[in-house]
């Protein structure tokens, strides 16, 4: 069994009168030393999936309605809130999208970095400080000996995200969930942050789930990819396998919308249409209204997950038949 196994996860949000499903039948797994990328447009349910694994869903508005999340052989969804908190920040931790607002403005970064450590491990104050310095050095914060006493507003966005990474790694987690960790950063800083995460993985063997809307980021960093559309994983494979053999028209659309640096075209390829609203009930394949290969069958029946090759799964009636 892999470190993390998500089985038929189903998440619903409170609508006006009923619970609306946002994530359906979502299954994947990640193991030590592995990086899984979850990719999709805004609103596809990738962040909610991450929050569900982490245990950060607001129960009143978002609910896990079905499924299991196994971490180290234990189902997280069966645990009491207290047991869950013992895992959060310790065995698994999370990096968020907004480095500018994810740190508490009133505490020094050194204190925030070891806060999870203080919660989960008993040490002396000197040991906490040593660990904070070690973490800051590890994430390449310049002048870390001074920076440990800085407040978040005194750091740049990239530095704050490094602090977030240092914070997430303080207890040597087995699983690190990074929800759009580079989206809010300058392109030049993006690469450094991604490299840093991978470098740390090489050293510590942490499993990483990287959530992104950017196929470029995924291609650069992940061993495996799951493409989500409207709450379902519509295609998943090893990164190399996916890029070599795209089977779902939506995945092709995502890849085409990455501008090539050497192309002369003035227009970016975009997927036509828009992401359907939550309230819209879509029969069959959720992508059919936007799909240029759509057939009557697509609107009627939900495509089953087809296994193609060794580890390539796809939800499309015409997988393998289309010239993508």
């Amino acid at each position: 069994m892999a470190l993390l196994e998500v089985e038929n996860l189903e998440i619903a949000v409170a609508g006006q009168s009923e619970w609306l499903p946002v994530v359906e039948d979502c299954s994947f797994s990640v193991d030590n030393n592995q990086t899984l990328g979850i990719v999709g447009e805004s609103g596809c349910g990738k962040s909610l999936t991450a929050m569900a694994i982490m245990g950060l869903l607001e129960q009143s508005q978002v609910n896990i309605t079905n499924g299991k999340i196994w971490l180290d052989g234990e189902n997280l969804l069966d645990m009491s809130a207290g047991d869950r908190r013992r895992i959060m920040g310790d065995t698994m931790s999370m990096i968020f999208q907004e480095p500018m607002t994810s740190l508490n403005p009133v505490y020094r970064i050194g204190d925030q970095i070891v806060e999870a450590l203080r919660q989960h491990r008993k040490m002396t104050s000197a040991e906490y400080r040593t660990r904070a310095l070690q973490l800051l050095e590890m994430v390449n914060i310049p002048d870390f000996q001074q920076r440990i006493n800085s407040y978040p507003h005194q750091l740049s966005g990239g530095q704050r995200q490094r602090v977030m990474i240092a914070m997430a790694l303080s207890c040597d987690p087995k699983l690190l969930i990074a929800d759009e960790p580079t989206t809010a950063l300058d392109v030049t800083v993006q690469n450094e942050v991604l490299e840093l995460m991978l470098d740390l993985q090489r050293r510590t063997g942490t499993a990483i789930i990287l959530i992104s809307h950017d196929m470029g980021v995924i291609a650069q960093t992940c061993d495996e990819v799951a493409v989500m559309y409207r709450g379902r994983i519509i295609e998943s494979s090893t990164t190399a396998g996916l890029f070599a053999n795209v089977l779902h028209p939506y995945t092709r659309g995502l890849l085409n919308s990455i501008p090539a640096i050497d192309s002369e075209t003035e227009w970016l390829d975009a997927i036509p249409g828009r992401v359907p609203m939550l309230e819209e009930k879509l029969s069959g394949c959720a992508f059919h209204p936007r799909c240029s290969y759509s057939q009557p069958k697509c609107a009627d029946t939900l495509p089953a997950a087809l296994s193609i090759g060794e580890s390539h799964l796809v939800r499309c009636h015409f997988a393998g038949e289309l010239e993508l």
């Binding site: 895992i87 959060m88 931790s93 968020f96 994810s102 508490n104 806060e115 999870a116």
Partner: peptide, 14 residues
């Protein structure tokens, strides 16, 4: 409602 409170929750604080 602020993001840093979510960070605190993710640390497993009570």
């Amino acid at each position: 409602k602020e993001d840093h409170v979510r960070t605190a929750k993710a640390k497993g604080l009570s």
